[in-house]
Simulated scan of single mutants.
Amino acid sequence: MDDDDDGVPQLSSHTLAALQEFYAEQAQKSTRDSESDIVSVDEDWQLSQFWYSDETARSLAKEAIDACGENGRIACVSTPSLYQKLKELSAEGVTVYLLEYDRRFSVYGEDFIFYDYNDPLNLPERLEPHSFDLVIADPPYLSDECLRKTAETVTYLTKGKVLLCTGAVMEDLALSILGLKICKFVPKHTRSLANEFRCYANYPLALDSLL
């Protein structure tokens, strides 16, 4: 630094570049924060996580917002990619919780509820029984045990409306334990899966009317 230029200090090119980089990062962070508070988390196949395609996630998110109504409450049980899309759409007045085993999603703060389907009713007191306008579930495994235990959670949380995404092989069990019927809408994933997946619900899906 010298005082030859009317006493105005001069930054070195290295310092100036570092300062510009810092301001650029802050601007990007500000933009992300203003657009959405959600942080993207990648799927983990070892935890049987398979993200919906963007089109499916968006369609289901819009369905959920429509189904829960103004100031509604939505519980996403083992459906993190749908939770992410719901938060991205930022429906005003709609409350969304994510019940998920993967603790990486604790970055979502109070919206995240640690959930293990093996202990289906081990839930915090703030999740009062029958307090959600819509419960959406996607059990991590295609097994009777997993669906039955997840159904205990769903039944505890829901006021009535339930939307389930799981394998086509679970159709009979979904009907017998939750009264859910198969829908026309077929969910897609970002990766090809060996098993056919379908949606099930106990109310008429707005999505089905578009098909």
Results as ranks from 00 to 15, higher is better:
Asp2Leu: 08
Asp3Cys: 09
Asp6Tyr: 03
Pro9Gln: 10
His14Asn: 10
Ala17Met: 10
Gln28His: 12
Glu35Cys: 06
Ser36Lys: 07
Val39Leu: 07
Ser40His: 09
Val41Asp: 00
Asp42Trp: 00
Glu43Cys: 09
Leu47Gln: 10
Ser48Gln: 11
Phe50Ala: 04
Tyr52Asp: 01
Ala57Arg: 02
Leu60Thr: 01
Arg73Gly: 01
Ala75Asp: 03
Val77Trp: 00
Ser78Gly: 08
Thr79Ser: 15
Ser81Cys: 07
Ser81Trp: 01
Gln84Asn: 02
Lys85Thr: 07
Lys85Trp: 01
Leu86Phe: 00
Glu92Ile: 10
Glu92Ser: 13
Tyr97His: 13
Leu98Ile: 15
Leu99Arg: 04
Arg103Trp: 02
Val107Arg: 06
Asp111Glu: 12
Phe114Thr: 07
Pro124Cys: 06
Glu125Ser: 11
Leu134Tyr: 00
Ala137Leu: 12
Pro139Trp: 01
Pro140Ser: 11
Pro140Ala: 12
Cys146Val: 10
Leu147His: 02
Thr153His: 05
Val154Glu: 03
Val154Tyr: 02
Tyr156His: 15
Lys161Ala: 13
Cys165Glu: 06
Thr166Met: 12
Gly167Ala: 13
Ala168Arg: 10
Ile177Lys: 04
Ile177Met: 07
Cys183Lys: 02
Lys184Tyr: 11
Val186Gly: 00
Tyr200Glu: 02
Ala201Asp: 00
Asn202Ser: 10
Ala206Ile: 02
